[in-house]
Design a protein around this nucleic acid. Structure first.
Lengths: 355, 355
DNA sequence: CTGAAAGCGCTTACAG
DNA sequence: CTGAAAGCGCTTACAG
């Protein structure tokens, strides 16, 4: 082609789209960014041209021209490495594909709410909130004080004031409980995570499973503890130890722990007390964290596709950013996006022992 | 100032630097990118102007003009969430600050080497390799087949053919062993991770500590096992069980496990056999992963600042990318960058019991 | 509602 | 070794 000053361009440019649609580049830009209203017909034509040319905006050009890159923040606790890595993987995937900048920052559980507010005001365009931060934030009613879009990742229930992407915790708990029932269990203890949306949703799932199987619910089998290994240890010692006498309607044959760490604590104590797991007692976890396969017996648990949740949450947030009209107060809060959970059956559950 | 078409710019631009240095923008660009050689005097002047103005290149403009963003890849195993999250946090911090794109991708341990080659050829500008991938890769001699810069994160020893950022594993093992010696231990078992650089380096540190304390080394106390919880379990049963009779020179009073998971396995088996930890036996881990504080007793271990290692590795890689002259074969391989490790003393170590 | 033009801050050929 | 100019692909005021 001889020498030319023009450098090769990968995909279609905005100019190409404009030419095809028979409009100016500005109009294409307007359609893409929802800045000013565009006549429906014009908009259609532009959208059609974009689709035909498989046009994708150049993030660098956009950043340069607007003198700013879209920056979305993700707050995290240093401790939750499994949660964090999965979410970072997913979020980074979406962010780097779309060309927005992902800023991550640790927060302090004791000042979580203030940390959110401060982080949001640090020049961010949007915010991604992992659990349990998103639930706390929603419960606090502070979301009204934030003027950038927020998306909650994996909250236990849909949140009234924040858009979210999550699994159906109620259904997951229903499935887990049902799998225990299929194994013949009828005396199933449930560890409730007090004061959390997750706890509430899962309790409902547990109850529905019992109800549908015609198993009466026993309040003595609803236990409470905070979701840590050590709290699990304390609870396990209290419930499995000899100190407490068997409940009236007979002993439980299975325990649904609040998460994998707690399940590990139950396994630990049960083993120490000479019980055989799962022959004498079935135990389930929740989350499918690394510890689930680092102990014996390996844990039957439920896995949330955290990377996918984060990826979708990031996409949703960016869409909200690009489309200000959809951002009205609680406009997105009502439409949670669901992804599928997975029941992972391993070695910690067995058929209930015959009497 | 009246209306103007000019939009506000945050920092100094290349033009401003050029003006101040009395050269053209092109020359500034040349200095920054080390593309063509610039006269020393000119270079000095430009560097001075850059420093005075605190000039930082605009990543968006650079990406737009060069029709490409610098893309660096990070390969990871899905399983190692603690490792991954720490490294992602650090790497992302550097990458987003400098404005390069971070691409992450999982690899399959069974086809690790091929995965690296393939990933490297997928249009990446540079590659970040976590352990144990970096060691395998270096050992394989395949690095010559890759034509993009590679930086190893946290290998156990310096690598001859790859630049790296790491802690001094030899010194860390020396410190850990020494802390045991301070507690009165003289019969210290060491679990060697066979065939790894980490294993080799730590063994040297262990030996040096014994030597300096005048403690004779006993080959019977050098055990070997692969770095997993289950292999640790097998080894622990063999060493702590009654099957094996006590070694000639008397029993060991402390065990340095290959990592935290293995230490947890030792604790698990010891407890099951009725030994008191740490009263009867001290046990140490390595890495300070979450499990270190999820078991009782909590583990004395060594922490590597993985996030910092990743951040520095990312910076180093970008520097190599921007400065092609320093990229000659093994040019960087010889200059490892070190960061500090930290000895974390917790509950799994006690003074040796009096005879 | 729509468009022509300038400009974002760099890098790339090219010519000296 | 150094520079003038064009161009990367968008968005921003502004004017119709």
């Amino acid at each position: 082609m001889g020498r030319t000053r023009k450098r090769a361009t990968k995909g279609a440019t905005m100019a190409a789209v404009a030419r095809r649609a028979g409009v100016s580049a500005m109009t294409v830009s307007n359609v893409i960014n929802n800045k000013v209203s565009v006549q429906p017909g014009t908009r259609e034509a532009v959208l059609k041209a974009i689709a035909e040319l498989d046009y994708r905006p150049n993030a660098a050009a956009r950043a340069l021209a607007s003198a700013s890159t879209l920056r979305i923040g993700l707050l995290h606790r240093d401790q939750d490495s499994a949660l964090l890595s999965a979410m970072l993987v997913g979020s980074l995937k979406a962010a780097s594909r779309i060309g927005v900048q992902l800023i991550i920052q640790p927060y302090n559980p004791d000042t979580a709410l203030e940390d959110i507010l401060e982080f949001a005001e640090s020049g961010l365009d949007g915010l991604l909130l992992p659990p349990p931060l998103c639930e706390q934030f929603s419960d606090s009613g502070l979301s009204a004080r934030i003027n950038i879009p927020v998306v909650a990742m994996a909250p236990g229930t849909s949140l009234p004031d924040i858009a979210c992407v999550r699994i159906d915790d109620e259904a997951a708990a229903f499935a887990l409980t049902s799998s225990l029932i299929v194994h013949g269990h009828r005396r199933i203890a449930f560890v409730l995570l007090p004061g959390t949306h997750v706890g509430k949703a899962r309790l409902e799932g547990y109850r529905r499973a019992l109800r549908e199987a015609g198993i009466p619910e026993d309040p003595d089998l609803i236990w409470q503890a905070r979701p840590t290994f050590s709290e699990g240890l304390v609870l396990a010692e209290r419930k499995l130890g000899t100190a407490e006498k068997p409940v009236a309607q007979g002993p439980f044959t299975a325990i649904m722990a609040g998460n994998d760490d707690m399940a590990a604590a139950f396994v630990n104590v049960a083993l120490r007390l000479g019980k055989r797991i799962p022959e004498d007692l079935s135990i389930t976890g929740f989350d499918d964290t690394p510890i689930a396969i680092k102990i014996w017996p390996t844990l039957t648990t439920v896995r949330q596709p955290l990377a996918e949740i984060a990826e979708q949450a990031t996409e949703l947030l960016i869409a909200m950013l690009r489309n200000p009209s959809a951002q009205g107060p609680s406009a997105q809060g009502a439409v949670p996006r669901f992804v599928d959970y997975k029941l992972v059956e391993r070695a910690s559950v067995a058929d209930v022992a015959p009497e």
